[in-house]
Design a protein around this nucleic acid. Structure first.
Lengths: 333, 333
DNA sequence: TTGTAAGCGTTATCAT
DNA sequence: ATGATAACGCTTACAA
């Protein structure tokens, strides 16, 4: 493998001149540049990124740590982050965390010297871990469990969007609306969306029946399906369901079908995320469409600022994304 | 940021001894090790990966290049590869290619000095590009378009599995079976699965009506849905559909529902991939379940052998994965 | 068991 | 406009 030295020798110049050519530095005579480029291609020279990294202290790569890559939601998140990073000439390395421990691990500097910065989508860590985010390298956190931490933060529009989704069900005539969410911690996706749901009920003067709020262990389709089957069998009566993720909603649609409940005739269903599949379900799924692109753009932007040191290290931003409502068949759209 | 030198000074030993401690080398007296470890934690020492890479010529990271991260199929692929790599102490960096050009680009050494090797899931490159795979760093190729190239190759069980899927439809009573696939090139996913489909028809002595084979542009749900709506409206009569991907099949289920065709009553549908969603569709989707785990394991294994140089550079393996059939409601399971 | 010296390939700085 | 020098932080080989 040819090095800069080899190219320099072949072109009859100094290594430094070769470096200047590679990096498009201004002060290189065109004829010299020619010679160097010719030698480079003749020797099939490729820059050694490890050496450059060592010297520069930068890698041009940012890390993205997500709980799982094998899910519609995080797949989409990754795709939008990659696109946003590419626009800034950055590459993205995706890492699967799967647990709070691994999230903390991803944060630890030792694993991250290969990245210039890290976008951490935290699902396992909670508010109590906020101080663990106080690390010396650039970090932007995504998610709904840590607010006001010592890093920049991009959050979903949980409260407002959940309120809008629930309001939509009410406007479509639902009066007994169930909420299907994950385990409600002090602050997390489920608790925030639960709050929005309650607010919408209050706005409309509807009672909030605790029996209609159901927490399941995970956000998977399986959990949604089981809940729907069990709750229908139990005779719990409701005419609308707000599921805090589309995956849950997909499961619910399946579970309701199993028990012969018609959607949207008897029960209306709305989800959250607008994953690709939701448009093609039977019935197609009404849902909240968060501004994924805008949030990804913003997260990368915040990270780049930290990397470039153009942001004072003391102040940190908390950004909440926008959203829109997508009305489809599952709510009678 | 503390370096090995700093730690050495603080512990009153040489840098080499610190290095030995870090790398668990045997000949270090316990008391010395203690001193060093204490100094390391006091100074909050982290190894500089860039420097280590430069010195070792290894990164401990392998690259995975996939056409898109935002799809059920590639999401699952990525997840299984990550798991397989983790078992060998390797980390995975995922890269989105999206086009033949980017696939070739991912191959180019300049981008890959950050990886010890590359697993390339090729969808854009074709057999004509096989020679482009002749690069000097370890590469394993996944996919159905390049066989016998100058690299190790792991392929899906396209022919056999398609034959089995089609045979299953026949056994369930279908006589006019449509095939929905992507653009058929000389060798690719669609052509291989088409061949399996034809073989199954021939096995059963059924005629192969070309009107029943339909190529769509992409493998997306949209394409499947459109095909189903159009073909039903056209009055094309068929009683079974083999879709070469689950995504297509999801679209087909939706399209058939739109036109009032009952599944599996009037038409039976089977897919390929066994994506997570397929179990929860309405009706749930019968499909081919390729041995994703086995194939991922094998791909990582082949790559590791190349990285370690334990394989002669001349011979290359072509591995085909196993599969099983998952029978669900869409074929009357 | 521990230490010394050298070098991995690149680029910033300063000199010419 | 070009080049000499040194340094980024680590580990291999060898010496003590």
């Amino acid at each position: 493998m040819a090095t800069i030295q080899d190219v320099a020798k072949a072109a009859g110049v100094s290594p430094m001149t070769v470096s200047n050519v590679i990096n498009d530095h201004p002060n290189v005579r065109p004829s010299t540049r020619e010679k160097v480029l010719e030698a480079m291609s003749r020797l099939d020279y490729r820059v050694n990124v490890a050496a450059r990294n060592l010297r520069k202290g930068r890698t041009g790569v940012i890390g993205l740590a997500v709980p799982e890559v094998d899910s519609a939601y995080y797949g989409r998140l990754a795709a939008t982050i990659i696109a946003a990073a590419e626009r800034r000439g950055l590459r993205v390395s995706i890492e699967q965390t799967a647990s709070r421990e691994n999230e903390l691990d991803a944060l630890s500097l030792s694993r991250n010297r290969l990245y210039d910065g890290l976008i951490l989508s935290a699902a396992g860590m909670g508010q109590a871990d906020a101080e663990r985010l106080r690390v010396e390298h650039p970090v932007v956190i995504l998610g709904d469990r840590i607010f006001g931490g010592p890093v920049d933060h991009v959050a979903m529009p949980n409260f407002d969007a959940s309120r809008a989704a629930t309001r939509h069900l009410i406007e479509r005539g639902c009066r007994r609306i169930a909420l299907l969410c994950g385990a409600v911690e002090e602050i997390d996706t489920s608790s925030l969306r639960l709050a929005g749901y309650r607010q919408a009920l209050a706005d409309a003067g509807l009672p909030a029946d605790p029996a209609l709020v159901r927490q399941v262990d995970r956000f998977g389709m399986r959990d949604g399906a089981e809940w729907a089957r069990v709750t229908t069998a139990d005779g719990l009566d409701f005419d609308g369901v707000f599921c805090v993720t589309d995956s849950l909603a997909m499961g619910v649609l399946r579970g309701l079908a199993d028990t012969g409940v018609r959607v949207p005739g008897q029960v209306k269903v709305i989800g959250f995320d607008n994953v690709t599949e939701s448009e093609y379900l039977i019935p197609s799924l009404s849902t909240v469409d968060p501004d994924h692109e805008g949030m990804a753009e913003r997260a990368v932007d915040l990270l780049v600022r930290r990397i470039e040191g153009s942001e004072p290290p003391t102040r940190h931003q908390d950004v909440t994304g926008g959203f829109s409502l997508v009305v489809r068949e599952s709510t009678g759209g």
